[in-house]
Amino acid sequence: MAPQRDFRRQLEDQRPYLLRYALLQLRDAEAAEDAVQETLLAALAGDAAYAGRSSLRTWLTGILKHKIVDALRRARREQPLGADDAGAELAELDALFVADGHWRDPPAGWDDPDRALEQKQFFAALELCLERLPARTARAFLMREHLGLETDEICKELAISATNCWVMLYRARVTLRQCLEATWFGEQRASR
C-alpha cells in the first residue's frame, strides 16, 4: 500500500476516538464532527510534521485541542453563555457540609488510586461522570484539565470573573470526586 494511503487509513482509524473526545468538550454533534474533520485535514496536509515522536493518537489529539478551542470561541461569539449561576452552585455545595463547616460525610481514602489509571474501565467510569456534569461546569473543567488552559483564559472565554471560575472548577472537582467515589472507589472498597 502506498505510504500516503496507509497514513490516511491510520488517520481514519482514529476518527471514532477523536469524535468522542470532541463531543465530550463541545456537546454538539455537528461542531464535534467539524472539529474532527478539520483535524484530520490538517493532519493530512501536515503529513511531514508527524515524525513518530509521539503516538499518532497523541499527535492528533494535540491538533484537535486547538480546533476545539477555536470552536468554543466561535460558539461564544455566536451564542454568548447565559448569566452566571455561581449562587446556585454554592447552594449545591452547602449540602456537603454541616453548619460549622465540617464534612457531612468526610471523604474516605481511595485504595491505591493510581492502579485505576491502568484500567480501561476506570476511564469509562470517569467519562460517564464527566458527561453527568452540567454543561457549563463541564466546559470550564475540561478547558482547565483537558485542554490545559490557564484560569484567566477560561474566564475570558466564558466571560466570567476569576472568582466564579474558581467556584465552577471547585464544583466540578467535588462533583466528580463524589461520582468516582460512588461508581468506582466505593465499589472497590466494598468488594474487598
Binding site: D13, P16, Y17, R20, Y21, S55, R57, T58, T61, W103, P106, P107, A108, G109, W110, P113, D114, A116, L117, K120, F122, F123, A124, L126, E127, E145, H146, R173, L176, R177, L180
Partner: peptide
Amino acid sequence: CEGCRNFDRQMRFLRRAMRALPERGERESG
C-alpha cells in the same frame, strides 16, 4: 483532619487521571 487529607490526595489524583484520559480513554480493540 483525615477527611481533608483524603480530599487533597483525591483532587491531585483527579488531575493525573484527566491528564491520562486522552491516551487511556477506551482504545479500539483492533
